[in-house]
């Protein structure tokens, strides 16, 4: 009863909701929200990608990293250097961000994934602290806390021509495109046999090992893939802001994707994106009303984590199950078919 059979396939309620969200994202510039909301929309999408990349590591593989800002920062700086020092275009910048983060993630991952459970968390925190300190110390390169203004050259899109990132509508669609492709790639990864191994490691590392899986290698794959997409997100955020500084590496920035994922719902990929848009959006609006916005958002989040640890998507699933059960109970014939 929750599905609609159409010639192009079955539309379940969950898919319908996703479709609606997708259409809203697609039409965001068309419905006349204005330049500022277009700017915010693009920025929140980049943060959403950042959150989703964290979900790949935490939600699927069970590795809680409080150092994800390192990848966000490395991606951002790698793209910045490619653009500013080597005169490269925005796409090359993204590629450089992707590759540089992979390189860094392999190096850091070889240390971090060998450390078990709580040790892993601590190692990631230390990595973020060291990265921030380094970025502040070498301010000649990074611009320190004052930062660097990043000017992104016009972007040439095949068949469509050249666009400026200062065009809010283009900037938004450019970001949306990169984010959607990245989310799709992550989704393909988590539904592949490798994604199943990630979840097995999250559930029972020892068991996975005793079934013949090289758990350390798979953790490293998750760590690197997750880092690489965080790097892309960092580069995108820099393009949108036109600015970068050393605080990209800070623990506050490292905590953001954790919060997005907790609010939206772990091991869903899309949950972290929803979480990012809601948190950042709420932060933006509430801050116009009161100075205590961080306190308010923080309290709401606390309530959320206590009431529903699986986040908004968990809440949504629970609601669906309850309605389904009620419908089933009130139906006299036992021949009710339900779709999960």
């Amino acid at each position: 009863m929750w599905s609609l059979h159409t010639p192009v396939g079955t539309v379940t309620l969950n898919r319908a909701v996703l479709l609606v969200l997708f259409v809203i994202a697609l039409l965001w510039p068309v419905i006349g929200v204005g330049d500022f909301l277009l700017f915010l929309g693009a920025l929140f999408l980049a943060f959403g990608l950042y959150g989703a990349s964290f979900d790949l590591l935490y939600g699927y593989t069970g590795l809680l990293s409080f150092g994800h800002s390192v990848f966000f920062g490395v991606g951002a700086y790698a793209a910045t250097f490619a653009l500013m020092d080597y005169g490269q275009g925005a796409f090359v910048g993204l590629l450089v961000a992707f590759l540089a983060t992979i390189l860094i993630a392999v190096g850091l991952g070889l240390i971090a994934v060998r450390v078990k459970s709580h040790g892993f968390v601590i190692v990631t925190i230390l990595i973020a602290l060291i990265a921030q300190r380094l970025a502040e110390t070498y301010s000649g390169i990074t611009g320190g806390t004052d930062g660097i203004i990043v000017s992104v050259p016009d972007i040439w899109i095949p068949l469509l021509g050249e666009y400026s990132v200062f065009d809010p509508t283009f900037r938004y669609y450019f970001t949306l495109g990169v984010v959607l492709v990245s989310l799709f790639l992550m989704y393909r990864l988590v539904i592949s046999p490798v994604g199943l191994v990630f979840r097995m490691i999250r559930e029972n590392e020892q068991r996975a090992r005793m079934l013949g899986y090289n758990v350390t290698a798979y953790k490293l794959i998750a760590f690197v893939a997750s880092g690489a997409f965080a790097g892309i997100a960092g580069a995108l955020a820099t393009y949108i802001n036109g600015f970068i500084n050393a605080s990209r590496f800070s623990l506050i920035v490292a905590g953001d994707p954790v919060i997005y994922t907790m609010l939206g719902g772990r091991s869903t990929i899309v949950g972290a994106v929803i979480g990012a848009v809601l948190i950042e959006g709420a932060g933006n609006y509430v801050s116009q009303v009161t100075d205590a916005y961080q306190l308010i958002v923080g309290l709401l989040l606390l309530v959320m984590v206590v009431v529903e640890p699986e986040g908004l998507i968990g809440l949504w699933n629970r609601l669906q199950r309850r309605v389904k059960r009620r419908v089933r109970d009130s139906t006299p014939t036992p021949e009710v078919t339900t779709d999960d």
């Binding site: 592949s192 046999p193 490798v194 199943l196 979840r199 097995m200 996975a208 013949g212």
Partner: peptide, 18 residues
């Protein structure tokens, strides 16, 4: 059980759905 069965070839099927 599917996960138990995949071991050894999960990586080579990276592009498929489990």
């Amino acid at each position: 059980v599917l996960g138990a069965l995949h071991s050894g070839e999960a990586l080579s099927n990276l592009l498929s759905r489990y």
